[in-house]
Design a protein around this nucleic acid. Structure first.
Length: 262
DNA sequence: ATGGTAGCACAGCTA
C-alpha cells in the first residue's frame, strides 16, 4: 500500500481553514499533520475537511497557543498525548493507521531568543522537551512509526541560509542539534526528507519579518518527517511545497510531504 | 544592537 503524508505548521487552523482546504483539494495527501492550530479541539473546523474525505481526526488542543492535529482519509486509532517537559501544552498527539503504522505529531518548543538555559527558561524547556522525547523512545523503542512536525531545529548546514551566522541563533545551535540527534538515535529514527533529498539547500520556514521571503530566501528547515528504520526504506517522493509560503495570508511554514510504500 | 511581522484577544505573550 502506498500513502502520502504531509506535515504543516498552519499558524492558526481557524484563520487558515481555506488554505488547509486548498492543500487537501490540490495535493490530496492521505494524512495531514498540523501544528500551531491555536484552537481548542472542539473549535477546529472539521466539517469542511470531512466534506473533502478527511473524515477522521485526532487532535490535542488548547486556547490561543500550540495545538496539533492529524487529519486522515483512513480511520485513525487515538494513541494519546504526551506532555513532554511537563509544560501543560498541547504539543503532541499520536494515531495509528489501519496498516499498523503509528504517527507521532510534534510541535517542539521554539525556545526563545537566548540559547542559554541559565538566563532563558524557554531554552531550557526546549532542551527538556527533547530529552524527554529521547527518554520515551529509549523506554519503548518505536517500530513501524513515523514522526513528523515542527521540531524547531534545522540540524544541517544546508538546512539554514547561512550556517556561520546561525550557530548562535536558537534553532541551529550545536546543543540543540546534538539534542535532536540524540532523539533520533534513541528511537532508531531516520530523516526521511534528507534520505530522499540528500543534497542542497532545503527550507520549510521563512520569517514573516523578511521583506521578500522568496528572493532573500533566508529560510530554515524546521519541519521534519522521520521514520523508523524498518519502514524508512519504503519512503520516497519527499518534497517541500514551497509555493504555499506565497499563498494569500500564508503560514510562515510550507508543507513537507513524503510518500511511503508499506 | 535593534527591529522587522503575525495570531490571539484585546495587553502582552509567543513565535
Amino acid at each position: 500500500m502506498s500513502f502520502t503524508l504531509a506535515t504543516w505548521n498552519i499558524n492558526s487552523v481557524r484563520l487558515r481553514e481555506e488554505l488547509v482546504l486548498k492543500l487537501l483539494r490540490e495535493e490530496a495527501p492521505d494524512v495531514l499533520c498540523l501544528q500551531e492550530c491555536k484552537s481548542p479541539v472542539d473549535k477546529i473546523p472539521t466539517e469542511g475537511f470531512a466534506a473533502l474525505g478527511y473524515e477522521h481526526m485526532v487532535a490535542n488542543g488548547q486556547k490561543g497557543y500550540n495545538g496539533v492535529a492529524i487529519l486522515s482519509k483512513m480511520p485513525l486509532e487515538d494513541m494519546g498525548r504526551e506532555d513532554f517537559a511537563g509544560l501543560g501544552h498541547a504539543r503532541h498527539v499520536a494515531a495509528k493507521l489501519p496498516n499498523g503504522v503509528i504517527i507521532h505529531n510534534h510541535y517542539v518548543p521554539a525556545g526563545g531568543d537566548v540559547p542559554d538555559r541559565e538566563v532563558n527558561e524557554k531554552f531550557g524547556q526546549k532542551l527538556d522537551y527533547l530529552s524527554d522525547m529521547a527518554r520515551d523512545f529509549r523506554n519503548a523503542a518505536p517500530k513501524r512509526a513515523i514522526l513528523v512536525g515542527d521540531l524547531n531545529i534545522a540540524p544541517r548546514e544546508d538546512d539554514v541560509w547561512d550556517h556561520k551566522k546561525m550557530t548562535k541563533i536558537v534553532s541551529h545551535t550545536p546543543i540543540e542539534i546534538e539534542a535532536l540527534y540524540d532523539v533520533m538515535t534513541a528511537g532508531d529514527w531516520l530523516d526521511v526528507t534528507r534520505a530522499d533529498i540528500p543534497e542542497g539547500l532545503l527550507y520549510s520556514w521563512w520569517s514573516y519579518r523578511a521583506k521578500d521571503w522568496d528572493t532573500a530566501d533566508k529560510g530554515r528547515r524546521l519541519d521534519h518527517i522521520w521514520a523508523t528504520s524498518d519502514i524508512a526504506a519504503s519512503a520516497h517522493g519527499s518534497r517541500v511545497l514551497r509555493p504555499a509560503r506565497g499563498w494569500e495570508k500564508p503560514s510562515d511554514h510550507a508543507p513537507v510531504f513524503a510518500t511511503f510504500d508499506i
